[in-house]
Computed example of a mutant assay.
Amino acid sequence: MADAASQVLLGSGLTVLSQPLMYVKVLVQVGYEPLPPTLGRNVFGRQVYQLPGLFAYAKHIVKVDGRAGLFKGLAPRLCSSAIGTVVHSKVLQRYQEAEQAEPGASKKEPVSSLEQVLKETSREMVARSAATLITHPFHVITLRCMVQFIGRETKYSGTLSAFTTIYREEGILGFFAGLIPRLLGDILSLWLCNMLAYLINTYALENGVSTMAEMKSYSQAVTGFFASMLTYPFVLVSNLMAVNNCGLAGGLLPYAPTYSSWLDCWSQLHREGNMSRGNSLFFRKVPAGKRYVWEERRFR
């Protein structure tokens, strides 16, 4: 119990610290560009027109809403983080208890490293999926609270009132908008990360090296970053579907068309070359072939 409480406290602290970053990322994902491009230099020193980065974007939000504006949507996100941590911990605990309760658990023959990885990854997948499923309504509310910045709405002014609004306008399914791509992205990222780490640790790193344990921990971090990059389109599509056609300016034209499904959203983003929109908040080059419309605060 104490371990779960400490995880909740740590997770809450990280959530608060990362809130401005997520806020800016979500607005960029939606396609909102309140500031015109500026002439800057890329990593190779060449002059290019760039969109405002994280700090310039955050500065604009502070100018409009004050410093507290950077933490819009924090309350439902904290609820999601805390509940998700508890659910994740409880599911893994159930697995451990069930394994210990099995007859002859202490006399079981040791399994191979691959079998162990498959077993642990499967359990982690179930735990993460359960946490995501239960907390997704809070995630939807978080995103909609943030996107209200675009149209200056106050439709989702509180967590409890937001639940009432979504249920009245969209029914139960409204709480799970964007759930499928989010689950798929989480599952693919988890399996990619763990299997790549297993392959690297088993076949690329030789046993007997003094820094083997340290190298293996690094490989897990590297594969995690690589897996998150590959599955980013699922995150983008999930977030767009969570705010799509919900009555907010950020979920309607000219920012986004009304998508019939998450596959339709994926298809349109792919055709436009926007599958990585919002993935980087630094050195944001103006998309080729796009026309910047200052009056509409977006690209077309």
Rank of each mutant, 00 (worst) to 15 (best):
A105H: 15
Y95W: 10
V111F: 10
L92H: 03
L35C: 11
S106P: 00
S112Q: 04
V91W: 01
V43A: 11
K119V: 03
K25S: 09
A105P: 01
T38C: 06
S81V: 04
Q50E: 12
C79N: 05
G53E: 03
T85F: 02
V48H: 09
A98Y: 14
L118N: 11
K25H: 09
G69S: 07
K25T: 13
Y95G: 14
P34R: 14
R94N: 08
L74N: 01
L27I: 08
G40H: 09
K108N: 07
S112W: 03
P34F: 11
L51F: 07
A82R: 05
H60A: 10
Q116A: 11
V117Q: 12
V30G: 04
Q96K: 13
L70H: 03
V43N: 13
R46D: 15
G31A: 04
P103L: 13
L92T: 04
F71H: 00
P52L: 07
V117M: 15
G53F: 01
V26S: 04
V43P: 01
V111H: 12
C79K: 01
S80D: 02
S106Q: 14
L118Y: 05
Q93K: 06
S80P: 00
E99T: 07
A68G: 04
R77K: 07
G53H: 03
A105T: 08
V28M: 10
H60W: 13
Q93I: 03
S113L: 09
K72M: 11
A82N: 06
V111T: 13
A68M: 05
V86L: 09
H60E: 10
G31T: 00
V117L: 15
L78P: 02
K108D: 03
Q116P: 03
Y49S: 08
P37C: 05
V48T: 10
G40E: 11
Q29V: 13
Y57P: 04
K107C: 12
K107L: 13
Q93A: 06
L39S: 12
T38S: 08
E102H: 04
P36T: 02
V30R: 10
F55K: 12
L35E: 06
R67T: 07
L78E: 03
K90T: 08
G84R: 02
V91I: 15
V86A: 05
R46N: 15
A82V: 03
Q96F: 06
R77N: 06
E109S: 14
V30E: 15
D65C: 09
G45R: 11
Q100V: 13
A101Q: 09
V48W: 07
